[in-house]
């Protein structure tokens, strides 16, 4: 099969307790497809962090996962406030998360750095007041 398997998820921004569910869904599918444990873990962590970010900062968004035999592409798109300074946002420990979510243990400033760490490619496109699109690629060795 040459064309990608596509999975589309709507990340509900109004419901914090459901954040992370798409990541678990993707994990199940990759398991069924027989991808190596390491690939499954990296995809699910990157996806999870992205999902949480969208819920915290952008009132949700959409996630598309494209599965190819040799790579998995994750595209996260939201219509939130956008990221003012991407380099700053990529620094470990930098966070603009409100106190309400910090109380739950989020907002440690590790979301974007982790997404970069666990993927081979990561590209952020962001416009203030319009939204953010993050594309990540995990290669399958």
């Amino acid at each position: 099969m040459d064309e990608a398997l596509k999975f589309h998820f709507v990340i509900d921004g109004d419901n914090f307790t459901s954040a992370g569910e798409a990541s678990v869904e993707v994990k199940k599918k990759l398991r069924q497809l027989g991808f190596p444990p390491d690939v499954i873990r990296r995809v699910s962590i990157a996806m999870y962090e992205g999902e949480i970010n969208m819920v915290i900062h952008a009132r949700g968004g959409v996630a598309d996962v494209l599965v190819y035999p040799d790579r998995i592409v994750i595209i996260l798109e939201d219509h939130g406030p956008g990221i003012e300074d991407i380099d700053l946002a990529m620094q470990e420990g930098y966070s603009t998360a409100p106190d309400s979510v910090r109380a739950l243990g989020f907002g440690a400033g590790m979301g974007l750095p982790n997404m970069k760490r666990y993927t081979e490619e990561m590209h952020i496109e962001s416009t203030l007041g319009v939204g953010t699109t993050i594309t990540m690629v995990v290669n399958v060795q």
Partner: peptide
């Protein structure tokens, strides 16, 4: 994996 992807 190819067959698995086709199945999915």
């Amino acid at each position: 994996r190819g067959i698995a992807m086709q199945m999915m």
